[in-house]
Design a protein around this nucleic acid. Structure first.
Length: 816
RNA sequence: GCCGAAGUGGCGGAAUGGCAGACGCGCACGACUCAAAAUCGUGUACUCGUAAGGGUGUGAGGGUUCAAGUCCCUCCUUCGGCACCA
């Protein structure tokens, strides 16, 4: 007999699905409720799909198929996040143009993806590097620009002086250039930002989102909201005022010195022309270099230098506070200047280090402990500490004093209530070729006559897209390849018609991926970025599956874009992803798979041997989808056996030996699989079907139940299910709910048995199991339990204190 | 350092406060076979016992409860995130 290869079955059905357009979503023409089942799209790599891809896409597809079987109109798209640095690096190395390598990779990847057997609607594919796509990325940029949410300002970049080029953070290795190993420096350049900080508060609201708590927590931490006070200071002998942020303003009277970030623009003005200029500016340079190394150790790297300046008459106390430059002060948090006190651990350590004054105002109740705090022997800050200053709040506890003290500070006009966020504005400029060009030009004439601030003139919508030129040189010779491409750079100003120069920066690829879920819904629309009518019906995304590594960047940016598009009136919802699930990781021998470790498991041989279904199912069986699990070459045989047994049952005779028992097994299985699915526990759903194969032999199965079981296994093993469905002489397709009836329903009435097995516990310990008729009364059951010989003996010489009966669950006695 | 999650057989893992170890791998024995593989059957936490039955057991230690893997407190370990955020 000729062996039928599993991959033949896979291909047969993949082909049929494609030919019959089974998975093409009908956006507007059906009454079925919609379900937008989204999985994070990949970067098109030349490498083969690995186990992680199969796990991610297989799990997402399993869910989509389940929802489809439940009667939803499921839309499951796939596309490519195809701009990015790797293709450009590859071009530098090999000379192969990103436009060629990227699309070649996409082609290969599409073929591989179809082997997974997912129900992607390939008609709706989006590729972010297609001009038809990035035209609208540019359009969105313009809308942000018009709304004042995109602007240009100076910001430091990593600069390699030898290569004369900007480096991405990943290209800086321990402060050195990845390519030539020369020291990287920070250099200020004009760059584009999205003002995401304006949305910080809204991004903290997760109301109505079914997201993992952990992800929400991570986003909260990332946004880093902190409430406090901005205190006013004035520099002695200079006509300069500044503010310092303090999130614990209760102890403001303890402030004895001020530190300023090395990269703060004020530093230079403080020391200009004084004896401190040289030591301070040398220090600033030293810290800048150190920070490039990124590994800042608070203990090892805490240092500072005195500026020679003072903050005058602090809060009217008559005291002047010395101003220092300190390595640990950050320019991009708060005001970049800090008021330091004895009640901040780092300030305390810094003061000790440089013998700066400290003045504690918060003390513990314990006398001897308080004495130590007073003598500066120990650092102290506890919520129940007692304040000694200011005198209006003497004796109050630290945590109780917060609000009244802030009121006091505002009344006295010492400072104002302020909120700070760790979240930075989104720097979207990339000095790179392989990205969407930022659609603006710089016009000297418009700058000079004041008609365009900064000379920035936006490209009109009708002239989009600003096409990425093909004819560029990838040999590194300084700036990004676009700089040297005259046909791109030299243009005319859309405003005045005079000569203008294009922006040569491209956009961060996170911009591309911040709205792709909208484009999937009308990928070929030439008039608009998205079709309002379809968007209204289909958004938000019902289920979004993807890696936890995107918890902060991508998932915050996509929410931000959605909020802005909502505020600009383009869409009527402001959260893109209603439900979010992160898949776990598949490990090998409990270690992450990586090329360097050499422990990568290649799917190929397993798919060849067992087919897509068994491979997919085994991955889902390893553990809960959100947890991942450990791959075992042998473990897959268990699922292969199950698949074979399942097929044998369906191919076998329709012979029922015990109908009641058969119905009980079938309905129990439907119930358990359904409940597992609803709990997103694919592993236990498969286990329930395995139990079915173990149990059904004893009672036999009829034709109707076979159909039920094929529908049940369909989301897990789609090719096998189609094959079996056909073998049962059913019409194509098992996934067409109108044909197959969709997801089976269970009926509790078949689950009821006539007798019940009840455990009997004495003092919480299991002593016997009794079998009783299911509708027996409590008294009768307790009586029956008491008469059990192994129970009886525990009553001898003892007294029954309590009798417990949990209906249907257990009988218990407490004896003394 | 801070925040979060998780610790269950030889292994992956199951268990709305109610029979711990479902399901699978592996292993042992048996059937089939000249033999092996495949397949099928039986068993499989540790421990005492021929057995019936008993004792111990979900990272460690306490607690709540008739009953705790599950709830509460302390600690340990592992993993993930943030890491000078004033």
């Amino acid at each position: 007999m000729d062996e039928i290869r599993p991959t033949d079955i896979d291909q047969k059905w993949q082909k049929k699905w494609r030919e019959t357009n089974l998975h093409n979503a009908d956006f507007l023409g059906t009454d079925k409720p919609k379900y937008y089942n989204l999985v994070m799209f990949p970067y098109p790599s030349a490498a083969k799909l690995h186990i992680g891809h199969w796990y991610n896409y297989g799990g997402s597809d399993l869910w989509g198929r389940y929802m489809r079987m439940k009667g939803f109109n499921v839309f499951e798209p796939m596309g490519f996040d195809s701009f990015g640095l790797p293709a450009e690096n590859y071009a530098v190395k090999t000379g192969v143009h990103p436009m060629d390598s990227t699309y070649e990779n996409i082609k290969i990847m599409c073929e591989q993806l179809s082997a997974v057997g997912t129900m992607y609607d390939w008609d709706k594919k989006v590729v972010t590097s297609d001009p038809e796509y990035y035209k609208w990325t540019q359009w969105i940029f313009l809308k942000f620009f018009e709304a004042g949410l995109a602007n240009r300002r100076m910001a430091p970049v990593n600069w390699c002086p030898k290569c004369q080029t900007c480096l991405a953070n990943e290209q800086v290795k321990e402060g050195k250039c990845d390519r030539c190993s020369s020291e990287v420096v920070k250099k200020d350049m004009e760059q584009w930002f999205f003002n995401i900080k304006k949305y910080a508060e809204r991004l903290l609201n997760f109301e109505g989102l079914d997201w993992p708590e952990k992800t929400k927590m991570m986003q909260k931490d990332w946004i880093g909201k902190s409430e406090g006070v901005n205190f006013k200071h004035k520099i002695k002998d200079l006509d300069i005022e500044f503010e310092v942020f303090d999130s614990i303003p209760q102890t403001f009277m303890a402030q004895t010195f001020v530190i300023i970030a090395p990269d703060h623009p004020l530093v230079k003005r403080l020391v200009e022309g004084t004896e401190h200029e040289k030591p301070v500016m040398d220090f600033v340079k030293k810290i800048e270099k150190k920070r490039l190394n990124k590994k800042f150790d608070i203990d090892a790297d805490m240092e500072g230098v005195f500026t020679g300046r003072y903050s005058e008459n602090y809060m009217g106390t008559g005291k002047d506070l010395p101003i220092w430059v300190a390595s640990f002060a950050l320019m991009d948090y708060g005001t970049g200047i800090v008021g330091c006190s004895a009640h901040d651990e780092r300030d305390f350590a810094f003061a000790k280090m440089y013998n700066l004054p400290l003045h504690p105002v918060l003390f513990p109740e314990d006398k001897s402990h308080a004495e130590k705090v007073k003598n500066l022997e120990v650092f102290y800050r506890e919520p129940d500490g007692i304040l000694h200053e200011p005198k209006e709040f003497e004796g109050m506890k630290w945590h109780e004093a917060r609000k009244p003290i802030i009121d006091h500070i505002e009344k006295k006009k010492f400072g104002t209530r302020t909120i700070n966020y760790k979240l930075h504005d989104w720097l979207l400029s990339r000095q790179r070729y392989w990205g969407a060009p930022i659609p603006v030009v710089y016009c000297e004439k418009c700058k000079a006559d004041g008609s365009a601030p900064g000379g920035i003139v936006a490209i009109p919508e009708k002239d989009l897209p600003v096409l990425l030129p093909r004819n560029v040189d990838f040999i590194p010779r300084g700036k990004s390849p676009l700089h040297y491409c005259d046909e791109f750079m030299k243009t005319t100003c859309p405003k005045c018609g005079g000569p203008a120069e294009r922006e040569s920066d491209t956009m961060d690829t996170f911009v591309d991926s911040s709205w792709y879920f909208l484009r999937y819904l009308s990928p070929k629309n030439e008039e608009n970025a998205f079709d309002k009518k379809i968007i209204k019906k289909w958004m938000p995304v019902d289920m979004y599956i993807g890696g936890a590594e995107h918890a902060c960047m991508h998932l915050i940016y996509a929410r931000f874009f959605t909020m802005v598009l909502h505020d600009l009136g383009y869409i009527d919802f402001d959260e893109p992803f209603k439900r979010l699930v992160h898949q776990g990781t598949i490990t090998k021998d409990s270690a992450k798979m990586s090329k360097s470790k050499g422990n990568v498991v290649s799917p190929d041989s397993f798919i060849e041997k067992y087919g897509s279904d068994v491979f997919r199912m085994y991955l889902m069986f390893i553990g809960p989808f959100v947890a991942g699990g450990d791959w075992s070459d042998k473990g897959i045989t268990g699922v292969a056996r199950f698949e074979r047994k399942f097929k044998d049952i369906i191919f076998g005779d329709d012979e029922v030996k015990n109908k009641e028992e058969m119905l009980r097994v079938i309905h129990k299985t439907i119930k358990r699989v359904t409940e597992s699915m609803e709990a997103f526990q694919f592993n236990t759903a498969i286990a329930a079907m395995m139990e079915f194969t173990n149990e059904i032999g004893a009672c036999g199965i009829d034709a109707e139940s076979k159909k039920t079981m094929v529908r049940l296994i369909a989301p897990f093993a789609p090719h096998t299910a189609e094959e079996l469905w056909e073998k049962l002489d059913q019409k194509y397709s098992v996934f067409d709910v109108n044909v197959s009836g969709g997801w089976p329903k269970f009926d509790e009435k078949y689950l009821v048995t006539s007798v019940l097995e009840l455990p009997v516990q004495i003092n919480g310990k299991l002593r016997a199991v009794i079998t009783v008729p299911v509708d027996d009364a409590k008294e009768k059951i307790l009586e029956c339990a008491k008469n059990e010989s192994n129970v009886k003996k525990y009553f001898e010489g003892a007294q029954i204190v309590k009798e417990i009966y949990v209906p249907g669950k257990l009988v218990g006695f407490v004896v003394k």
